[in-house]
Design a protein around this nucleic acid. Structure first.
Length: 232
DNA sequence: GCGACAG
DNA sequence: ATCTTGTCGC
């Protein structure tokens, strides 16, 4: 899909996609999904997965898994070009789309407002939130050391996201709106997705299943949990 | 020029 | 991202 894109091409596409950003409120939230990618260090095979949780109960309902071949290199600022094609392939397996998808990485907290969450959100026309584990862009102020403390992250006076303490004595995560959601909602909703771990449940569970998929413990396809369980 | 740099 | 042992702190 993007394998023969140069970085100049990629920058142009990001700037064009950014024109479609619409940070309007998301309504009637009944489910929230987490999406992630796993891969072996020197392999082009990506193991993509999406988990769907009920909201606000956060019980695992469904998950989907697919593999995808990518040759686009890892490059800060261009994560979408590596991960979005694989995620769109798993996305196709899901017939009942979730209200929101949380992705591992940034949304508009990005030099061209086109982090992986915004990139996926624009192409899939889907409400998304970016949840990154470290800081890519903007000022990096560390919030107070207590659960739920947060600080705005801005660039040139513009608010682009938040650092959020999801657990005492743990480094913050970085939240930003992806697409079809307001900045305030992105922060409020992620706060409600915090379990007993640093990483909020949607992304945390997605990471867990793609790893099990990669090591052969789970198989490709769309799966339904018969007896939804709270996993924390 | 220098340092930083999502996964 | 993944691999991998011990170690510090709540």
């Amino acid at each position: 899909m993007y394998d023969n894109y140069s970085f100049d091409d990629a920058i142009q596409l990001q700037n064009n996609l950014a024109k479609y950003l619409s940070l309007v409120p998301v309504k009637n939230i009944t489910t929230i999904a987490g999406a992630d990618i796993s891969f072996d260090k020197n392999s082009t095979t990506m193991f993509a997965g999406i988990v769907i949780l009920s909201y606000p109960e956060l019980k695992l309902i469904n998950y989907a898994l697919e593999t995808f071949e990518t040759s686009f290199p890892h490059e800060p600022g261009f994560l979408g070009f590596r991960e979005v094609p694989a995620l769109l392939k798993v996305w196709d397996l899901i017939h009942n789309k979730p209200s929101i998808v949380v992705l591992d990485g940034n949304g508009i907290l990005h030099p061209r407002r086109m982090g992986v969450a915004s990139h996926f959100g624009v192409l899939a026309n889907q409400a998304t939130i970016g949840c990154a584990k470290s800081n890519l862009y903007g000022n990096n102020h560390i919030p107070e050391n207590s659960k739920y403390s947060s600080l705005e992250i801005n660039s040139h006076g513009e608010i682009l996201g938040f650092s959020l303490r999801t657990k005492d004595n743990c480094l913050p995560v970085y939240i930003s709106a992806g697409q079809l959601i307001t900045q305030q909602q992105s922060l409020d909703i992620i706060k409600k997705c915090i379990g007993n771990y640093r990483i909020p449940e949607p992304t945390r569970l997605a990471h867990e299943i793609v790893n099990d998929f990669r090591i052969g413990k789970l198989k490709a396809g769309f799966h339904t949990i018969n007896q939804p369980l709270t996993l924390f």
